[in-house]
Amino acid sequence: MSNVYPALIVMALVTYMIRVLPIILIKGKLKSKFVKSFLYYMPYAVLGAMTFPGILYSTGNILASVLGGAFALFLAYHNQEMIKVAIGGILAAYICQLLL
């Protein structure tokens, strides 16, 4: 095992640098239409990539994940609040796991 505390500090510093450098370096608004459009679409791309297929392996049971995800999709499609969608998905996956 490595010495934990120096490793912990290195990890924290590297991660913070990644997060803070763009905010330190970029002053003012970017002008390029492409860059602005790119940044506007970025959250949807990040979320899409993180959600699928990741969601399938999120509960330890693929069927429970699929049903929980489907219920969340249904709630989100009907414009329910984030917290309701999250709790609905958890409950659907939980009930499914209990029944299996």
């Binding site: 959600t51 989100a76 998905g89």
Partner: peptide, 22 residues
């Protein structure tokens, strides 16, 4: 069981953001 079901929460949240926008 509940703890493992909670693993889906983040993803449901993502769905709640993306679906209405899409």
């Amino acid at each position: 069981t509940l703890q493992s079901a909670m693993g889906i929460a983040l993803y449901c949240m993502f769905i709640a953001i993306v679906v209405p926008a899409a």
